[in-house]
Amino acid sequence: MVIAEQGSAESKTPSARSLKSSRPLVAMDNVSKVFSNGTLALSGMSMTVRPGEFISLLGPSGCGKSTALRIIAGLGDVSEGEIDWPSFRINSRGLPDGDISFVFQEPTLMPWQTVFGNVYLPLRLKGVSKKVASERILTALESVGLQDFADAYPRELSGGMKMRVSIARALVTEPKLLLMDEPFAALDEITRQKLNDDVLALWKATGITVIFVTHSVYESAYLANRIVVMKARPGRVHSDFPLHTSLERDAQYRTSEEYRQACAEVSAMLLEAMGGEEH
């Protein structure tokens, strides 16, 4: 059913969909990561990311979710194993050249730049002139509902709005893969739900692939069509399963029996992953 739904979204944006091939976006094979202080953050993690997926990377704190996400983004080396980006242009350092965007837990905006300037950053670094970029920036701002705040400075915005700017900045390059590292963890519940709905809407509208790190079972079950549960110490994949629903993911879905069941399933899986740990 979800597949049918996605199909309808696909028909809306044929150009975005036609770019996709059956090749995976990211292929992580047996990846391990040891930090310079000797901590083994990831151990033998394998995962394949396919176009159009909305993956939720779920796990207890300290299980290496964020580390995995950074490695997927090409930030930081892999200690062992291999990671490949078959669908991306690769630069001289063997890393994906653009097409991947990252939304951090904090908005991570430059306080000395206006909202416009912050969203312009990725294009500016690519050498796109302000004039050419302007339209794309305004479109990105519009997609997060901040078109009237282009000239505002970050300090003038609320926490939720800053996060929206961060999302607009991630979208302005029209990336294939959007990585989000617990993006709404610091926000209040109402704002968080609203932003979750917005991210879902963007995903449906653009066909972008999303990997969303969270420690919230409810967020995972609401957003993702594939859930990867991770186990801690050392970080590795515990289970990896699709999550389909026949319902539209909206406010009504939140109160539906199906959502409750999905939450229960995901929660059980997370408990299992945390089994054997001392609390």
Partner: peptide, 11 residues
């Protein structure tokens, strides 16, 4: 996407 605008957290 355009209609899911920010209104919850406007000042």
């Amino acid at each position: 996407a355009n209609e899911t605008l920010a209104s919850a957290d406007l000042p």
